[in-house]
């Protein structure tokens, strides 16, 4: 998982640098980059920051 948090204007995918047009309402929101399909996670709403979403842990589930 990338540890680099990019804050750019406009926001870019940390994987492929595609522009992200997002209006998240929850920290932790998960979204897919339309440029490369990478799963991203919103780590902060203010300021708006995204990073590559972590891989599922062993105890994740329903």
């Amino acid at each position: 998982m990338s540890q680099t948090i990019l804050e750019t204007a406009p926001l870019e995918c940390p994987e492929c640098a595609a522009r992200l047009a997002i209006t998240p309402t929850l920290a932790g929101e998960v979204l897919d980059c339309r440029g490369c399909g990478a799963e991203l996670e919103v780590v902060s709403l203010t300021p708006l920051l995204v990073q590559l979403a972590p891989h599922a842990e062993e105890d994740w589930g329903e």
């Binding site: 309402t25 932790g28 979403a53």
Partner: peptide, 29 residues
């Protein structure tokens, strides 16, 4: 209390808003 804002968590948040329920989302982090 949630970890990641998946589609389900957003739908729950929106449902609470529709019903006029006071709703606070707290990330377990």
């Amino acid at each position: 209390v949630y970890s990641r804002g998946r589609v389900e968590e957003k739908m729950l948040q929106e449902a609470a808003q529709r019903q006029g329920v006071q709703f606070t989302a707290v990330q377990d982090d």
